[in-house]
Design a binder for these strands. Structure first.
Lengths: 94, 94
DNA sequence: ACTAGAATATTGGTTATCCAATAAAGCCTA
DNA sequence: TAGGCTTTATTGGATAACCAATATTCTAGT
């Protein structure tokens, strides 16, 4: 994995498969700003190269889908981040 | 702020003021590996320069303390990260 | 006083992360 | 079939984040 962006991508794709633009918009909604193409596509390329995400072309659109390996990687990353940052975020919820 | 490490430092210092080594050990407990001096001290220096953290020397020890500005910055960062990543971590808690 | 160890700190360099600009390819409407 | 629009993608470069190695300063035990 690359970092927090890749982490978020894996999570979003675990909810449902998406087109790149859908992903970018959802990320934008969470982070407050839509990521640039030069940010999101290299991240997707990286995730695809490491077999955590698979691609399927439909005309000009590309569907990104979480692989089985991506799912287990996501689960591990979630545990890691929950241990490291879980209580920090919870502490801000009130 | 620099990144996730600075975020964690601010949070830990919001619990109580600490020496650098205490910080490093607590971070190590959370992240699984104690950060190198070349990681943590530049981060502390940066936080100090931006007045989010204050320092107080006691012999060879240095106490790092969260400033008022650091507290408000932390609160904002917590809201941001909670919005961006909150449900991702919560989803892994079960 | 000397020395061993601990805490703090800096330096130099590597990799990760991300953006701005640009390009290409497919779709739609006229 | 020409034009513009959308989506996907690449390139080049800037900055952030971090580590390994080294240096400095203070403390404590002898």
């Amino acid at each position: 994995m690359r970092g927090m962006l890749s982490f978020m991508i894996l999570f979003l794709l675990s909810k449902r498969s998406m087109y790149g633009q859908e992903l970018a918009e959802e990320i934008g909604r969470r982070k407050g700003e839509k990521p640039n193409p030069g940010t999101i596509y290299p991240a997707l390329k990286d995730l695809t190269a490491s077999r955590l995400v698979s691609v399927e072309s439909h005309g000009r659109m590309t569907v990104y889908r979480l692989t089985k390996s991506g799912r287990t990687t996501l689960a591990k990353a979630q545990k890691y981040f929950a241990r490291a940052y879980g209580d920090i975020l919870v502490a801000s919820k009130k």
